[in-house]
Design a protein around this nucleic acid. Structure first.
Lengths: 196, 196
DNA sequence: TTCATTTCTTAACATAGGTTAATGTTTTCT
DNA sequence: AGAAAACATTAACCTATGTTAAGAAATGAA
């Protein structure tokens, strides 16, 4: 599927938007290829771009006070990514956004992005809804972390991104689930034993 | 301090805004008093308003799959509150927003709020930054929940809202910290023993 | 194809926090 | 003021997950 079709199908799910407007968006931004392990931005850098993933997979993470990697989410094709806090405030990010596969992004600067939001009211509406949903997604993850067992969280992730285990090493999945690799191994073992 | 001064001081921290513009905002919305235990909205209702707290304290929470109350945050005077997801999408909220004290709010409907954002570009900018910060705050809470002990999270809360223990029953603070009341009691006991 | 690196599994042991239930304390309501 | 309700503490025991370290398997680079 072309980038245009991908983006059109993505936006039309939530708002009314025309083919011409999609063209305008794509012309306003630029495509960028990230090699596996490349970062779009790192801690200490300003996140100058927001992006729409057309292909690939990334992790959004932070190094916590104890020096441990904390993965907030994995993002795959057809997701938006960026550090909006850094993007809008111009302050350095405290996060890393790193490709886990070769990845293709459609990127926008703040000037470009604000202009598109001004030019296309439906897209401005889309952004408001999307930001609200992003906040909600973080709250759901928080509540899941608090109230569900690691096994429940593991099964939920498998439902949400079934091919994640083919795309991401298991110790990163453990990090995302908020557990250590030996615990994830143990859980997987228990689950295969249950099946029998 | 008057509501106008409170709101002005609040906004001027992040953006350039005039006294007249604050007047315009206050005229566009309305004040509402919530009695202790009243809800601004409940699960299943559309969150028709966003609000700025001029006085009081609320909890933003959800009932999880196990029937347990999950408090995402406490909000006090000089905070903004609402379920932006429900507010912008018009879908029912899955959250409750309940007053823990008699509380005074400055409320705006979506029509009013969008109009203010259109009329006052600086306020539109403020909202973008604030939404990004809200998402960041949820991520911080998530990472704290994953990587810090209950004792560390307890001490952090005390730093952030020192008078929270005078305002909110302890079992709600336990809920917010993601632990059970007996665990919070144990932690407090250990801390007083350490001090000696 | 082989060596080096990264990743995964396993096991034994440690521990933070959960559970339950009893008791004590404070707040609220009439 | 007194009764009822809500809240807080404590103790004994339980369990999920962490920790560490070793070895096995997979991957990738030369």
């Amino acid at each position: 599927m072309s980038i245009k079709d991908l983006l059109f199908n993505h936006l039309i799910k939530s708002v009314s938007i025309s083919s011409d407007q999609i063209d305008h968006m794509i012309r306003s931004g630029r495509l960028k290829l990230l090699k596996k392990k490349d970062c779009l931005f790192k801690e200490g850098e300003v996140a100058k771009y927001v992006g729409y993933i057309t292909k690939g997979c990334l992790k959004y993470y932070q190094i916590d006070d104890k020096g441990e990697e904390q993965i907030v989410y994995f993002a795959i094709e057809d997701w938006w990514i960026g550090d909006l806090n850094s993007f809008y405030s111009g302050k350095p990010s405290t996060y890393y956004l790193q490709a886990l596969e070769d990845t293709e992004l459609l990127l926008f600067t703040k000037v470009e992005f604000d202009q598109i939001r001004k030019d296309i009211p439906a897209f401005d509406e889309f952004c408001k809804i999307r930001h609200a949903k992003a906040t909600d997604a973080r709250m759901e993850t928080l509540i899941s972390q608090r109230s569900e067992s690691a096994e429940e969280r593991y099964l939920k992730l498998l439902q949400k991104i079934p091919d994640i285990f083919q795309r991401v090493p298991q110790h990163l999945i453990a990090t995302y689930l908020g557990i250590k690799p030996p615990s994830l191994s143990r859980i997987r073992k228990q689950l295969t034993e249950k099946k029998k």
